[in-house]
Each structure stands twice: as structure tokens, then as C-alpha cells.
Design a protein around this nucleic acid. Sequence first.
DNA 1: GATGAATGAGCTTTCATTCAT
DNA 2: GATGAATGAAAGCTCATTCAT
Lengths: 216, 216, 216, 216
Amino acid sequence: MTPDLSNNAYNPVASVRTTGEKILDAARSEFARFGLAGGRVDRIARSAGVNKAMIYYHYSSKENLYREVLSGHFRRVGQLLKTRLTDLESIQARLEAAADVWMDVFAEMPEFRSLVLRELAQPSSELLDQIADVLIGTGLPEAIPQLMSDEISAGRFREVDTRQALVSFVTMNIGYFLISPLINRVLSITDENDFIRNRKRAVIDLFFNGIKVRKL
Amino acid sequence: MTPDLSNNAYNPVASVRTTGEKILDAARSEFARFGLAGGRVDRIARSAGVNKAMIYYHYSSKENLYREVLSGHFRRVGQLLKTRLTDLESIQARLEAAADVWMDVFAEMPEFRSLVLRELAQPSSELLDQIADVLIGTGLPEAIPQLMSDEISAGRFREVDTRQALVSFVTMNIGYFLISPLINRVLSITDENDFIRNRKRAVIDLFFNGIKVRKL
Amino acid sequence: MTPDLSNNAYNPVASVRTTGEKILDAARSEFARFGLAGGRVDRIARSAGVNKAMIYYHYSSKENLYREVLSGHFRRVGQLLKTRLTDLESIQARLEAAADVWMDVFAEMPEFRSLVLRELAQPSSELLDQIADVLIGTGLPEAIPQLMSDEISAGRFREVDTRQALVSFVTMNIGYFLISPLINRVLSITDENDFIRNRKRAVIDLFFNGIKVRKL
Amino acid sequence: MTPDLSNNAYNPVASVRTTGEKILDAARSEFARFGLAGGRVDRIARSAGVNKAMIYYHYSSKENLYREVLSGHFRRVGQLLKTRLTDLESIQARLEAAADVWMDVFAEMPEFRSLVLRELAQPSSELLDQIADVLIGTGLPEAIPQLMSDEISAGRFREVDTRQALVSFVTMNIGYFLISPLINRVLSITDENDFIRNRKRAVIDLFFNGIKVRKL
DNA sequence: GATGAATGAGCTTTCATTCAT
DNA sequence: GATGAATGAAAGCTCATTCAT
């Protein structure tokens, strides 16, 4: 059930990592920690154990290396979404699966969070376009509101703005991961893993209780 | 009802902005756009219309200037929270007020979002400690779960994990602002202001419908 | 017998030091510690307790202030030499008096040593010209070798190169003060004052035993 | 008899000087002329004919480059002392050899004098510790006074303070070199080389005549 | 005389990138 | 592919000096 997102997800066989892969790995962590502007080519080379010139040989520029790092992540996320969200009929099943994917993504791709946050901070980010394309490509942003409308028509969901509802669901899931360092401090959460484990159920519970037709 | 968060919130009378304030204003926008590492002292000086050395005269280092920018924001946020969240009894009133504050903060302090996102991206950020302190200082992180517990005991709220519920509420509100560029693209939201206007009601509606005791 | 070289030698009445004097005092110690290139106008102003612009008001430039510091020293040294070396007949009396003066100069004008060393380090120093003039002005550099020649003619001194002998006498005296930090370390001299007290006698003793006619 | 202390002493084959050596050579002369604070990295780079960044590539900082310059000198001096002061029995032979070494050092390492003077001017110089160690390492500071004591016990030397005597010998030798620009002016010495050539004999003569037991 | 703020030139250092081997 | 050395542009910062009040 858990996906294959082990350490070597990006580089299946660690023992024969090519120079290009070593650079990519080092760059991933460098850019996650310091961002594009703050990341240092020297540091990447050193922590990859290769000569600095090799970075230019393989990736031609720091900025391009950064792009490679990001597109690697998105390829992986897209692939996960595609694999895990097919053949699911009910809206609940789909949303649960999506929640799972995000949890896995953040759990197993530790640098992803930082990279995305920094991209979100930039006024015009070509990267966001890429993510958006990946997400739209899953068909979910269109399908989910449509399914909700169907449920509303069928009298099972309350009359809500379906896009707002979708945004609510997404932010409850992703939002926690994005601002977890802040939340952990404010709520004195010490066992983060435990909190995350319960998170999915809590979100699903609140969301469907909030959207389904019930009587007071 | 809307607060005085106009452009000159930090410098009431624009016409007599001191050099220090001009620098701070320029720095705010520079760091929001490019981050600490990407921000350029030259550019700040130029766009503030002052000599570069003045930045060091007034703020002693680029990093310290950055800190001043951030702490200025937090002071403002803390002050807003303090002003707007007092004398409110019911949990609903409090959460609505908090939602209003966040909406205002993001609407009126355009650089805040970027700055916070970049800080969230950093593994160890002393700034997050500052925000956390501001938030804890409002008493809300303790009060809200307590009020929820009271409602649960009184049979009015369902048996939910109160901290998870709080996190859900917060992320539904803040989360949208943080990832709005992405959401806007994915959901093809063109009139962002319109979406934001409806957002508060949608969140409150979903949240309380989801947490209150009702019958199916 | 000991001269009036107390702390306030340069500024007779400390309690009413003018701004110009305060600056001069601070500058003296600053330039002694860091040299002309390493000395900082800011630091001088701060440690003098005056505004930086005052330095320019009173001394017009850093370099000029430096010159004032040095010429203050030389005036003092010249004055000392003049006072203490007059009315002395015998060569021994004169050399002893000169040794005393140097000892007093180094003992009571703590910054002098550093300043002179730095000037000596510079290939072309107008300051050295000034000192040289002061020294020549005392008449000693001409008188002493002449007196030695007389002694030689009279058969009391051995046939030595009188200028070399004078240089030997001077370096034995001054030389120690110039390189004392080094000598103290190498010879593990802990009680420097004690060593200095004995120095004069040792020099005189060695010099005259070395130069007088004796039999093996 | 004279040692190989030609211009390229530090870099035996001038035609293949490495970049690091070129920098070191340029730095040596720059720091000798202007000191650490007054020395300019730009100037060093230009006069070495290399890119400024190379200085940081090879020596990581201006201060460190300065340290390298000095330790290079001290290594050389230590080596000279070690080579020239072995296998010498009599105290006279040893002192003469030491005097020769110092004369050679000052004659052939033209920058040494300035560098040492500036270091002597600094209140706390780690460099002086290094020189002191080199000197102590030669064993002379301990051996010479001991030899003098032996001579005194044997009735050949007069009863003198042996450390004072050693200091006298050293300052007569080194002292002249340190303050030569001053002495030359005061005594109108035009042919410095001639004076230096005679200096050694004059010092030895005065010293031993002064310390040996003789009769008036 | 005295001050705080301002200036401009120049400082040390950094860093992405390229070159020669 | 791989390396160590090199480059040039620009970065952050300093500092002697001056100005307005």
C-alpha cells in the first residue's frame, strides 16, 4: 500500500550513482536548504564529491540544475498521482487517495516542501505553472467539483460553493505540511508523526460532516 | 470595520518619511521579491533613494535589516490580533474575528506572504519562533481548544480532536493565501478578490457544519 | 631628579582638557595601537567622547592629526634633551644623562615606542627627518664623537671608530626598549621594571670598560 | 662563506614561480611597505600579475596571506640560525656567527626589517611569539649566558649580569639595523654598506674588551 | 563649536562560470 | 569525463570626509 518512495527513489541503484545523479542529489538538498539564490555551486560540488566544473559539464548552469531538481520532483509527484488516483469511483475514495498521496509526498520527499514554499514566495514562478499543469493533468480539479455538484443535485451534499469546498479540502491537507514548523511550536506538538497519522482521518471526518446534508 | 492598514501603515505620514523608514520600505519589498540571499543592498539603496552606506549606518548589516523588516511585520500582526480579538465571548465570534484578521493581514501587507513563506522554507528559523510567540501571546492557541472541549462537553460539538480541528480551521484560512498562486491557476480563478470575499463565509460554514452535532 | 612626565604631561590640567586635547589624547593611543593606516577616525572620536566632525574641525584630516600627535612627542623629547643635557662637561656625564632621558621617554610616554617603530618601518618617513633634526639640534651627535676623539688623543680611550662606538651606546640603550617584547619572551624576563633599572648601569659599565684603555 | 640568500631564496627557480609564490612575493613587499592595515589586496594582485580572486583561492584572506609572509621569513631565519650556529665551541665564535647571521638576514631579506618593526609596534603580536620560539629553539638564549658564567668562574670575564650582557650584544647588532634610517641621518652616514661592513668588528671589539678581565 | 546624517570612493571578499590539461 | 586553477563581475561593507542645522 505504501508507495516505493524509499531513499533511492530518484536513483534506483545507489551503488552505481552516476556523477550526474550525485550532483542532482546534492543539489536537491542544497536548494531545499538555501534556495536558488542562497545555494552555492561550490557546496553542491563538495557534498556531491565531484569537481565543480562537472556541474557545468552536466547541467550547464546553476539555474538549469535547479530546474532539473524541481522537474525531477514534479515528475515523481505526477507519476504518483497518476498511479494512485485511477480506478476510483466515489468522491470520498478519490479525496482520501489524494490526501494519502500528499502525505506520502511530504513524508518521503523531504526537500519538496522547502522547494515549493520558496517557489510560492516568488511573484512569477515558471515552476508553479509546471505544478499546475501536473495537477490539472490529473483531471481532479475539474472532476471533483463536478462530482460534488452531482452529490448536491442528488441531495446528499449541502448547497456549497464547490470550488471553495475543494480549496478547503486541499488546504486542510497540504496547509498543515506547509506550516507545520509553526503549528508544532504554537500547539506544542512534540510527536509530529503521531499528529500526522491522525490528521488524515480528522480532515476527512470534518470535511464530510461539514458538507453532507444532515439535520441539526 | 476594515482596519487602517493602508500603504503607510508603518509610516503614518508619508511625506516626512525618515531615511530609516525609506530604507525599511524598500527593503520590505526587496526581500519579499528576492529573499534574504537574493536581495541586493544596492537595489534597496537605489529604490529608497539613499546612499548605500546609509543602510549600514542605520541597520548595520543586510541581515539585520532583514530582521527589522520581519519584526516590523510581526509587531503589526501582534497588535492587530490584540486589538481585534478582545472582548469576544463565543468561539464562533473569535474564530470569525481571527479569520478577518488574517484576511486583512494578507490583503493589506502584500509582502508578508512571501516573507513568511521563505521563512517557513528554512529548517531553523528564528523568525518562526517570533511568530509563534506572537500567536501564543494572544492566548488563542490555548483558549480555542478549551472552548471546543466545553462545547463538546455540553453536547453541542461532536467528539473531535480539538487540536486537529483548530489546525483545520487555521489552514483553511491561511492555507489559501499561502498557495493562492497555485490554486488560482489550477482552478482558473480569475477574480481573486471575489473568491477571497466568499472564502471566509465558506470556511466558517464548512467548519461549523462539520463540527456541530447534527443528525444525518 | 626624575622629570615631570606625569600622565598629564601633554595637558597640564586634566580637568579642563579642551576638545582639541581630548582628541589628541585619543589619537595618540589609537595611532600607537593601530598605526596611521589602521587607526580609525570613528574610534578616536568615540574614545575622545566628541563628535567625529570635530576632528576635522580641529585637525582638518586624519593624516594631519597624526602629524600633530607625532610632533607633540618630538617637541617633548627635544625639550627634555635640551633641559637635561646642558652644563655637562665629561663625556660620561653626558652619556649617562642621555641614557636617563631615553629611559624616561620610554617609561613615561608609552605610545612613543610604537609610533617610532612604525615610522622606522616606512621607507621614507618625514617624521624621521624631524627626529633627526631634533637630535642633531642637541649637538650631541657631533659633540660626543669629538669628545671621544679627545679621549683617544689623550690616551684614555682605545683607538676605536668613534661613530661606531656612539651607535653602540645608543643601540644598547634604545635598542632594548624597541625590542623589549621580544627580549622579554626569549629571556623569560618577568620583572621588566627590575631589568630596566639595572640596564643603565650595565650599559655604562660595559661601554666604558670596552672603550677605556686597559691592560689585559 | 656568504649564504645563498639571493632574490629567489624562497623560490629557487624563478622562471617557474607558481601563482602562489608570485602572490607571496608581491605580498611580502606590499606588507613591508604599508603594513597589514595599509596593504592593498588589489595592489598585491596587480603587482603579482594575477587575478585578485586568486589571492583568496590560495590564501583565503588578506590576514592569512600576511601570516604566511611572516612565517615564511621566520622559517628562513630559523633555518639559517640552525645551519650556521652548529659545531661552534667558543663563545666568541658563536657570537660572531650570530652577528653574521643577523647581518645576512637584514642584508638579504630586505622586507624583514619593516615587517618585524611593525610587529614590534603591536601590543600583542602572535608573531613575536613565533620569533621568540625560533630563537629559543636555537638554544642560544640559554647557552650564551651559561658560557659567560663559565668564563666568569674561570676568571676570564668580569663579574657582569650575563643576561644584560647578552641583551647588549644583541641590541648592538640588531639595534643598528632597526634604526639605521635614523642613525644614518643623524650621523650623516652616506656609505651605509661601508658602515655595516665595519660594524661587526666594532661590536665584537667593544663587547669583548668590555667584558673580559683586564687591568686599567 | 558641536551634532547626526549623509556621501562617494574604495575596500575585502564571494561566486558563477570557464579554461587548460 | 574529470580536475585544479583562473577569471570578471559584483557583492557586502568600511571609512575618511563633508553637510545642514
